[in-house]
Write a protein that binds this DNA or RNA. Structure first.
Lengths: 156, 156
DNA sequence: CTCGATTCAATTGAGCGCAAATCACAGGAG
DNA sequence: CTCCTGTGATTTGCGCTCAATTGAATCGAG
């Protein structure tokens, strides 16, 4: 008697992926990546590389650990990605003389210069999303709340 | 004079990743994957493999194209994934005798049997998300709307 | 029936993401 | 100073994701 529909002819609820919040987020993430691809191709960046650049544009000179904390990414993901940005001439990677364990990430002039181009991309994405700022902020807050709850679960 | 804040001391708005909806979705997606990992390890599945199984539990005997349409994934992603599910004894992959281009995907008894274990996982995930069904449905609808808009943009 | 276009799956190459193991450095206890 | 522990980054191995290409089968025009 624990079923919501009591007795007759409901063989199984049969959940579909389209009913699952995790799948909505999964699919929307891919859709964003594919939206960004042609826009970022002009800058020679991938979507995760772009997120790294946005973070560095806000605070230059952080180390890998701090960057990873902001993006929720592991150093084993970031190290090869940062090497590619380095090879592309957008950042430099130097050990901190005060603590040789840390690698400091600094934008090159070329890396700084890309910031100007990014504004145009943000406008394109906002247009593609096609929702007002209020709606987006509310949605974002709801998603972040869930993310934080999932991360908290991780420790428990 | 094109700046929104007219004259004084606003050097740059400096958008951060935490202000970007795309990043919220990106990070939440990873959080879900990490929540699922220990749960699915018991079944020997990865998260994308689990989504495939959920889809096949709902409709057995589809081909790769149809599966990809549901999950928004390409055959180049699915082919190796399906080979792993085949190697694990959860599905079979056979050419459609009516049209030899298609590969039909069918659950094995072992693949069917996993469906029972999945209910428990869904309960764990729902508990971790910790929101009522109404809230989740609203959130999911909003995300799906944006996803559809992004996909539509793709064609234009 | 033959030719050309289309469709479905598979393959290839590059990059992302994470767990686990490794290496180097820093800092404290003795 | 030496050992031990902890931390930051890298390496390795596996799987996912997609663009581009290939190969095989189907279908339609003539």
């Amino acid at each position: 008697m624990s079923s919501p529909s009591p007795g007759t002819a409901t063989p199984a609820p049969a959940p579909e992926v389209s009913d699952m919040l995790c799948f909505s987020i999964y699919a929307a993430g891919h859709a964003f990546t594919q939206l960004y691809r042609p826009l970022l191709d002009k800058l020679g960046l991938t979507y995760p590389q772009y997120l790294v650049m946005v973070t560095l544009w806000n605070r230059d000179g952080q180390n890998v650990k701090e960057l990873g904390k902001t993006l929720f990414l592991d150093s084993s993901t970031l190290t090869p990605l940062l090497k590619r940005l380095d090879a592309a001439g957008l950042i430099t990677r130097t050990r901190n003389p005060r603590d040789e364990r840390e690698v400091l990430l600094r934008l090159t002039p070329a890396g700084q210069a890309l910031k100007g181009e990014a504004a145009e991309i943000m406008r394109c994405v906002a247009a593609a999303v096609g929702q007002d700022g209020q709606t987006i902020d509310t949605l974002r807050a709801a998603i972040d709340t869930i993310r934080d709850r999932l991360h908290a679960q991780r420790k428990a």
